[in-house]
């Protein structure tokens, strides 16, 4: 009994000693800092680089009204005020469902197209707990051409013929505050193509970057290299400026692309830079917060 008690006492003693050694001389100032997860943000300034999807989503609970506007060819000269007399546009609404998923719908004047898409953040570039060098998102768009067929045409299309799809893997890296690069492998599928020799699937690779000029001004470039092309069409190349004002990002650019849906600008860009078929364009957005972040709900000022 006695022996057992002695042993017990000794063990307790040892434990206490160990514990007190640990708890003595606490100096919070010299404690090792714990690593925390640091997700890279603002890789690009907007959810679209110009025409194509960027790695960015609109924020959780934010409804974003986007107007994409393209003028006519600058080469038309002064009579058409360098294309400013003509306009093609897409009006769209985007919504951030949560921190990873955004959805959107749009309507373009070109071919009276409707489009709907989702974009999902699969991997986020981060440092700290984990080191992940790139962000990866998936985006899929369905496009419906609602323009009516010419009633005298030999073939009157079914509704299903008017659909096309674009699937994209978006891979981006923010190298530093000044420079971000994005690669966008893309597959466009047409339910119906012009003739039987044409494939239904078109592969392309988007290459885009952002270069900061000042804190509120960024230069962007967007190019899609088509692996297989439709005859008579060119790769789209766009140079843009992202201008940040207090409430929104204003994007100004010159491009040879007419359309603003994936299939149209990637595969059906008729204009060529070599011939001077370029146009001015701009994107404006207006964000509405529908769902406040939960952190702000109980804050009173």
């Amino acid at each position: 009994m006695n022996k057992h008690f002695n042993k017990f006492c000794l063990t307790v003693l040892l434990f206490l000693f160990a514990a007190s050694v640990q708890s003595q001389e606490v100096d919070l100032f010299n404690e090792k800092e714990e690593k925390t997860k640091d997700i890279v943000t603002a890789v690009f300034k907007s959810s679209r680089i110009v025409n194509g999807q960027s790695i960015e989503n609109v924020g959780n609970g934010v409804l974003d009204l986007k107007i994409l506007h393209r003028f006519g060819n600058i080469s038309q000269g002064a009579y058409n005020l360098f294309g400013l007399d003509q306009a093609s546009m897409r009006i769209g609404l985007d919504y951030g469902v949560n921190n990873r998923l955004m959805i959107g719908v749009g309507r373009s004047t070109f071919e009276k197209q409707y489009d709907a898409f989702f974009k999902y953040k699969l991997v986020q570039q981060q440092t700290g707990l984990k080191e992940i060098p790139v962000s990866i998102s998936l985006a899929s768009t369905v496009i419906y051409k609602s323009l009516k067929d010419d009633p005298t045409a030999a073939y009157l299309s079914y509704v299903s013929d008017k659909f096309s799809f674009a699937h994209q893997i978006i891979i981006a890296r923010k190298f530093n505050d000044y420079f971000s690069l994005q690669l966008t492998p893309t597959l466009v599928h047409y339910n119906l193509v012009a003739n039987s020799t044409m494939p239904n699937d078109f592969k392309s690779l988007g290459i885009s970057f952002r270069q900061r000029i000042t804190k509120r001004l960024n230069f962007t470039t967007e190019y899609f290299y088509s692996v297989n092309k439709i005859d008579g069409y060119n790769d789209p190349l766009t140079f843009g400026l992202d201008i940040e004002t207090g409430g929104h990002v204003f994007q100004l650019h010159v491009t040879n692309a007419t359309g603003m849906t994936e299939r149209t600008f990637i595969n059906e860009t008729a204009g060529s830079w070599a011939n001077g078929d370029v146009r001015f364009g701009f994107n404006i957005t207006r964000a509405f917060t529908l769902k406040k972040p939960k952190e702000l709900r109980n804050t009173k000022w």
Binding site: T41, K45, D177
Partner: peptide, 23 residues
């Protein structure tokens, strides 16, 4: 001691958060 991760600040909208962090 207090430690505060700047990126963990939440704002009413995303753009404000980006401006806060970036600019």
């Amino acid at each position: 001691i207090f430690g505060v991760l700047i990126k963990a600040f939440k704002f009413e909208n995303q753009l404000m958060e980006d401006h806060f962090n970036e600019n």
